[in-house]
Nucleic acid binder design. Structure first.
Lengths: 150, 150
DNA sequence: CGGATCTCAGATACACTGACATAA
DNA sequence: CTTATGTCAGTGTATCTGAGATCC
């Protein structure tokens, strides 16, 4: 019973878009979360800081809609951000069900820092592609994503 | 304290390749694993069946290399496949450390069935793209993946 | 009442780490 | 002695389900 020692991925996968998407996403995720972990932050935290910084204060339900993070996961993520004084949680005076989440100065600074780091990481991620090809890939993926969210 | 009710993702994300990759992967994964779950199978199982069907019997270590599945996760996945008689696990006579994993006839049939289903799912996944654009996307992603695995 | 909001407990899939025993 | 293999226990991230309490 001879055992091949190639270590190669099946040909079938090499041209399966769903495979390519999930596998490149694994590498993208690894690069990104390594970058974030260096500052003690997870993807959820960065997403929330970005959303808050770009679109202003919001209730948790609204943050969930904007960030795509599940409501039940927001609680912990916001707790962690609030513990580090990156956001503030305050009751909404006009609707007592709601908390209004606001990014702090420290949160804004951290977001800028992470933003720059993330920009560098894109370069690492797309290293083998020319600038034109990077644009192509970005546009194609954006259209696919649009189709499945819109 | 007026709260915006847009529900839109930050502009920053829309052009971040790492974001687009991980988010499209979420949709790809959802479509694929819905398809697989209908037959009581996970991604790991399909990957293993494909690898075994295309490249023949292999030790678990070799399967790990071919499929990209971590060695410690292989044990459980192969147990589950063996319980359903989709693969067989036998000791290797020439190297007593090894198990030789072989796909069964039932495993091959299931793989073919899943393969067809997965092909249909690619269509759903890439619905907004023309055939040419699908090829472009596939090639670009393949190059990125190649760069990070090779 | 119906509907929205927040919270908490738990589950799953995928990937990874560390430790261990066994055998080449 | 070193390396490869298989197994087990556990961690972390992202996502989702379900149940509840509160308030509009």
């Amino acid at each position: 019973m001879k055992i091949l020692a190639t270590g190669t991925t099946p040909a079938r996968f090499a041209s399966l878009p769903s495979w390519l998407m999930t596998q490149t996403a694994v590498h993208a995720h690894r690069l990104v979360s390594d970058g974030l972990a260096a500052v003690g932050v997870r993807g959820y935290h960065y997403r929330l800081l970005s959303v808050l910084d770009e679109s202003g204060p919001a209730s948790q339900a609204e943050l969930g809609r904007r960030s795509g993070i599940h409501l039940s996961d927001l609680v912990a993520a916001i707790n962690e951000l609030a513990d580090r004084k990156l956001v503030e949680r305050a009751p909404d005076p006009v609707d007592r069900r709601r908390n209004v989440i606001t990014i702090t100065r420290a949160g804004r600074l951290l977001r800028r820092r992470l933003d720059k780091q993330l920009t560098k990481i894109q370069d690492e991620l797309l290293a083998p592609l020319s600038p034109d090809e990077r644009d192509q890939l970005t546009r194609l993926l954006a259209r696919v994503l649009d189709h499945h969210t819109g």
